[in-house]
């Protein structure tokens, strides 16, 4: 386990360095840079979403709220004369503060009820922002300064975002914190009884991932030089993060990386001819995944590797995707019976 982990980190580092070298290796290719920037931002967000959605099992449909808050924080501070780079962490902080505000009550809800509540919060935020036209520009959005750094600069910033998300997720995965999240996902009450501080952990996971997504929102705002409530707070964006993580592999560190790359490439390919067609493709893919391979692409890859190993050597390899298998509920049990809050909080 330890050695495979080290191998994974070395591989990630190699991929990161290779990607960082791209602007030098293929200079002046704007299309490639654009593709890279948006893909990296998706990677960063997908990986971040997965900290709460995958590790802790709280599937949120409301992450656009964090992205939008980050985007608007950067936009407003930038218009007030700040340097954009300084505003990214502040956008992250604002998103984190909001996630605490929302998460403290809603994370007490069990599974699907949390998901439904997040749809409500996300959509309410979008409509509120659309109506706060004094601040957000309302339905006409905000135009931002046109003096921006080069595409190459954005390429590196986006890459740093993705790398940060990956590093944070990879660290959490191996830490006691990550173990606690896994425990509370598998059985909240059992985790609680073993001394896992579930409320604290859930909220921490929410805050960390919200901060990462908020910072990405800021980068996005400076990159496009324009923010509009309907785009940065859109439900489609929230859905995208769910899809990226699920298709890549819920609860794995590199699954969402894979998911984001596929997601963006499919979207980019189909966008010109059929603007929303990629969502159809992704919806179908999601159906297939939930029915046949709940581990997503990472689970599938793990299974293939295991099969090959099983064919060549005697003992079967360790569980390929331990965190994303069909986790059967033991019985029609308490949380299926009652929507409400957990007993323990």
């Amino acid at each position: 386990m330890r050695s495979s982990l080290r191998l994974e980190l070395v591989a990630a580092l190699a991929v990161g360095l290779l990607l960082a070298a791209v602007p030098m290796l293929i200079p002046g290719n704007i299309t490639l840079l654009n593709l890279g920037i948006l893909t990296f931002l998706y990677v960063a967000q997908g990986v971040a979403w997965n900290i709460l959605g995958g590790f802790a099992g709280y599937v949120s449909f409301g992450y656009a709220a964090f992205f939008g808050l980050g985007a608007y924080t950067t936009a407003l501070l930038w218009l007030a004369g700040w340097s954009p780079v300084l505003t990214y962490p502040i956008g992250g902080l604002v998103a984190a503060a909001f996630s605490l505000l929302v998460g403290a009550p809603t994370l007490r809800l069990v599974g699907p009820y949390f998901s439904i509540a997040t749809i409500g919060v996300g959509e309410a935020m979008r409509i509120l922002m659309l109506n706060l036209d004094k601040i957000t520009g309302g339905a006409s959005g905000l135009n931002l300064p046109t003096v921006v750094p080069s595409k190459t600069w954005f390429y590196f910033v986006a890459l740093i975002c993705a790398a940060t998300s990956y590093a944070v997720a990879a660290w959490i995965r191996t830490s006691r914190f990550g173990l606690g999240l896994t425990a509370l996902r598998l059985d909240l009450e059992a985790a609680e009884s073993l001394g896992v501080r579930t409320t604290l952990f859930k909220n921490l996971a929410h805050i960390v991932s919200a901060a990462l997504v908020g910072a990405c929102g800021g980068v996005y705002a400076t990159y496009l030089q324009y923010v509009h409530p309907d785009t940065v707070f859109s439900f489609t964006l929230s859905i995208s993060l769910v899809l990226i993580a699920l298709i890549g592999g819920l609860g794995t560190v590199w699954g969402p990386v894979l998911g984001a790359v596929v997601f963006f490439v499919v979207q980019d390919y189909l966008q010109t001819s059929y603007p929303t067609f990629h969502l159809l493709v992704y919806g179908l893919l999601l159906l297939v995944i939930i029915l046949f391979e709940p581990g997503g692409m990472a689970g599938l890859a793990g299974r293939l590797v295991a099969r090959r190993r099983g064919a060549s050597a005697g003992p079967p390899a360790a569980d390929p995707a331990p965190h994303a298998e069909h986790e059967r509920a033991p019985m029609p049990r308490a949380d299926a019976e009652r929507p409400g809050t957990e007993r323990t909080t």
Partner: peptide, 19 residues
């Protein structure tokens, strides 16, 4: 399976119908 799997499945179905 876990309740969330059903939710996601039906959500995927909604995406398909809508698109």
């Amino acid at each position: 399976a876990r309740p969330i799997a059903t939710l996601l499945l039906l959500f995927a179905l909604w995406l398909v119908i809508q698109n």
